[in-house]
Design a protein around this nucleic acid. Structure first.
Lengths: 166, 166
DNA sequence: TGCTTTTTGTTCATGGTTGTACAATTCTGT
DNA sequence: ACAGAATTGTACAACCATGAACAAAAAGCA
């Protein structure tokens, strides 16, 4: 039954990717800790940064960008709105969508959070040269493109997505 | 108030790290999908692989390796044990600890899952040469070491951890 | 030995994420 | 114009992960 299964510990792609995954995990934990003083978590930061760079985006488009379910944003956004960090304005052109925008205080908080994140990344990668960083980013970009191709291994097999194909 | 906050979009360390984070996210989603036929999820795979490579490990040591809370394993392990994938044998030397070990069928499933993961990684990184992979792993390893230093930004600030310092 | 402290695993309340079901709105094709 | 399909956001139940509180066992120390 075992159709030749050599263990992959010596496979360069395999074990180096494992290092990538672990680095992401520890970076995520460190970021969560570094953001505690601002009382936000990494998912909130993702939202805020996207709103900063793309004001007026809809909840659905934001969910697509972040690769999370839109129900997730339906829970998170009202909570950030109550904190006065953003506003959800109904679009007169299409009354289904809510256009998202940072408030001034939301923009301030976002800039603070970005500074914290940038500082963490800079300190963490201080031993990597610009050329090394660019090569890493190059490899990662190819991975992302490979996995997000239309036939890629990424789309969730939900009923809604199945119907969309038909 | 704004003490010079240039936006980091052009900072090589910053934007290349963002690519790393996104690659990890899409790879995690893809792995979850690829593992569906085996009815396990990435966290289960992490557990199984560690048990495969370190038989007889205790729950606490496993939690430390995986960087998750031990209460998490207290929920997950009995469920994997009920599926017959592993056994938890009480240590006669120290009757507090439970020694974890894969069953034969657990080993089989682990090998299948590793094959699936290896295949996914190989396909995804096929455009990256061995040298590129090794450089990526090198950079990631330095990041991990930087973040897991004793004074690093990783340890959770829990009451238990605070007491340990005193 | 006795007493305190530490360690291990479990239980439980809390909060986060997901997918599904649903109402409101817009689009499509005839 | 109008009925059916598609899209947007919400509500909800299920599942996962976490930290705190706890009981049992071991270790440290007088």
């Amino acid at each position: 039954m075992n159709k030749k299964q050599p263990l992959p510990w010596d496979n360069p792609r395999f074990h180096n990717w494992i290092a990538v995954a672990r680095a992401c995990q520890v970076m995520g934990l460190s970021l969560a800790r570094a953001l505690q003083p601002l009382d936000i978590k990494p998912p909130h930061l993702d939202i805020l940064v996207n709103l900063f760079r793309t004001p007026g985006i809809s909840q659905q488009d934001l969910a697509d960008k972040l690769l999370v379910g839109r129900s997730n944003l339906s829970m998170l956004l009202p909570q950030l709105e109550k904190r006065g960090l953003l506003v959800r304005r109904s679009d007169p052109q299409d009354r289904r969508v809510l256009r998202l925008e940072l408030t001034p205080s939301g923009t301030d908080l976002t800039l603070e959070a970005i500074a914290i994140q940038t500082d963490l990344i800079d300190r963490t990668m201080k031993t990597a040269s610009t050329e090394e960083c660019n090569l890493v980013g190059e490899v990662m970009t190819r991975i992302i493109h490979e996995l997000t191709r239309p036939d890629g291994a990424i789309e969730a097999r939900t009923e809604e997505a199945e119907r969309k194909k038909a």
